[in-house]
Design a protein around this nucleic acid. Structure first.
Lengths: 340, 340
DNA sequence: TTTAAAAATACAATCGATTGTATTTTTAAA
DNA sequence: TTTAAAAATACAATCGATTGTATTTTTAAA
């Protein structure tokens, strides 16, 4: 900040004006019991009079504590993530921590840059949902070596002594697929995310195992892998029409499911009669489209609160052992899956 | 960060290891021409070897520059705002600035806290879309006195020598209302936001003046004021049913419009035949519901880029005069407004 | 009133960088 | 080889706070 020197009031200016020592000013401003209340009042008054504004850079440098946690998120625009963030902020604020939100946009490069910035700024801890392309964790190591704490949320990771919070993706997927099967689907396509990360691996496995349990053949061609964007949904919908005999879709997110549904409807396909659909995330949009989308609801806000709590425990009490929490999900049944 | 002292490597450690002065190390790490390339290389190697991580707190304190801009946003979960943020980040990153995103959740109290934190952390500039309840700007003054730069975006404000970027809310509203009138609506209700801030005042005025122009009577009871949440949409829809003869709705956001539409549909009202509806924001959801929602599209990403550019200009070149930019909008016509 | 204990305040070093100036070393011209 | 200029490096102060220890002042008991 290009600031005129004259405007930056420091504790030394206050000290000089009152003819006392700056250490006393510092203690007064931090409400230390070592300063008499009379002096405290004089200092606070003078501080206001001079327009003093504390400089956290200096204080954080000295104390080696920033009372700040960094949150790395693939994208804030996804409802799931913004809810998680709300939960995080809720708990963090309560505990006296500031929150810095950073978007990786699913890029490993951005994620690395963010790690460096957060590290250089000495945040006390980091909550991270890794990008779709994060295949190794070398970029996390320097921060851990520096003594920082990391907690993974949403996308599960097994790394050193870091805690993590996620949902049971395998089970959720199994349930979703089972639901389609029980509704009479025989040829179920799976919209799968990048198999680089555990989250999507687990979701695929749940789908595969559900098919197996009910004696349906697993066909690798039925697994359509992408980043699950809106465009991907349309591309997949076209492929499904080419395949010809598909009667069910289980998508690893709502975004792709919804755009596929829109496209299929535009081509005269009846959802759910011709093709039943289940998504993942319970985006607000899923309850508004027609037919309503059957999907998996995750405890997003809760996940944020728990991740934040875990991290703050790690920060404030280094003894804490790493733990992995797995939260329960709920299959929200709407009309898109009523096949028969 | 509770860090073991032994792990914090500083430029002094590097200097000691190579038997040179720390000032040379500092210059080498900043790629200053004053250090020979041979020495630079030795320093960089040693830095890597020792696991050196620069401490921005110290550097920022010394240079009085953080290369960071703060963004205050009512809510990141709204599509409009997350797009603005993307634009901001895009430009900021290009220019070498970090971005700190903070949510006010439409609360003046939170906004004040955020200002204090950003100020204490000496961000170089702040982009702010004020909360719905921000009626005065006293909480912005200390930061300006400190020499900070503020640029308003989205929600227009007239304050000291701050620049601002917004859209022409009055014109947008006028157009939206005019569109309903031209489609045959005679009794148009307006879902209005808090009249405390200019944004919603302007939108209301546009509605009022459009009615006037077409000789329709303005009825204060037709102006329903709220925070435009989902719940508000339902409450308003019920009121409309009580009123009985309403044939058009112009809502100041999509959220309220959409929940009203959902409720009205559930009560057997035909949209747009019985009641035509226009929203505001062009949320993704507006194109997916049935009927598609006619709404106002704002250049969100562009707005973010321009706000960011303006702010960075202010930061880097204090001479710049404040300017107010007004961006153009577009009425996106879908089926919800085809009244006749 | 004297004096020991408690309370309040001052002293001085420190966190980890940056930067203007001084000094030393290297280079290259005479 | 000498020497002036240029290049490289070292010295020392500084950014604005915090904090352990030393000193001074106040309090209250004897």
């Amino acid at each position: 900040m290009s600031i005129k020197k004259t405007e930056q009031i420091t504790i030394h200016d206050i000290a000089r004006a009152l003819n006392i020592d700056s250490s006393t000013v510092s203690r007064a401003l931090n409400d230390s019991p070592r300063v008499s209340s009379k002096t405290k009042q004089r200092i606070l008054e003078k501080a206001t009079e001079l327009g003093y504004q504390r400089n956290s850079l200096a204080s954080n440098l000295r104390t080696n504590k920033t009372n700040t946690i960094g949150v790395i998120v693939p994208r804030i625009s996804r409802n799931f993530f913004s809810s998680v963030i709300s939960g995080i902020e809720d708990t963090a604020q309560e505990a006296g921590y500031n929150v810095i939100i950073c978007q990786s946009f699913e890029s490993l490069e951005r994620e690395k840059k963010i790690m460096e910035t957060l590290m250089a700024n000495r945040v006390d801890g980091i909550l991270i949902s890794i990008s779709m392309h994060t295949v190794n964790y070398d970029h996390l190591k320097p921060y851990l070596n520096l003594g920082g704490s990391i907690v993974f949320y949403d996308r599960p990771c097994h790394f050193e002594n870091c805690s993590s919070i996620s949902i049971n993706d395998y089970k959720a997927s199994f349930q979703a697929t089972e639901h389609l099967i029980q509704n009479g689907c025989k040829n179920i396509v799976h919209f799968s995310g990048p198999q680089l990360i555990d989250l999507y691996k687990n979701r695929k496995q749940g789908y595969v195992d559900a098919l197996k349990k009910y004696g349906l053949e697993f066909n690798e061609a039925y697994c359509l892998e992408s980043k699950l964007s809106e465009e991907d949904g349309v591309i997949f919908a076209k492929k499904i029409l080419e395949m010809g005999h598909i009667d069910g879709i289980y998508s690893s997110n709502d975004t792709a499911a919804i755009s596929a549904v829109q496209y299929l409807k535009s081509q005269g396909v009846n959802i759910p009669k011709d093709i039943a659909v289940v998504g993942f995330n319970n985006d607000p949009i899923s309850s508004v489209i027609e037919p309503g989308l059957t999907t998996i609801n995750q405890p997003d806000f809760e996940m944020g609160k728990m991740a934040s709590t875990l991290l703050i425990n790690h920060i404030e009490n280094k003894k804490t052992k790493p733990e992995s929490k797995v939260l329960d999900i709920e299959l929200v049944i709407r009309n898109s899956s009523k096949h028969n």
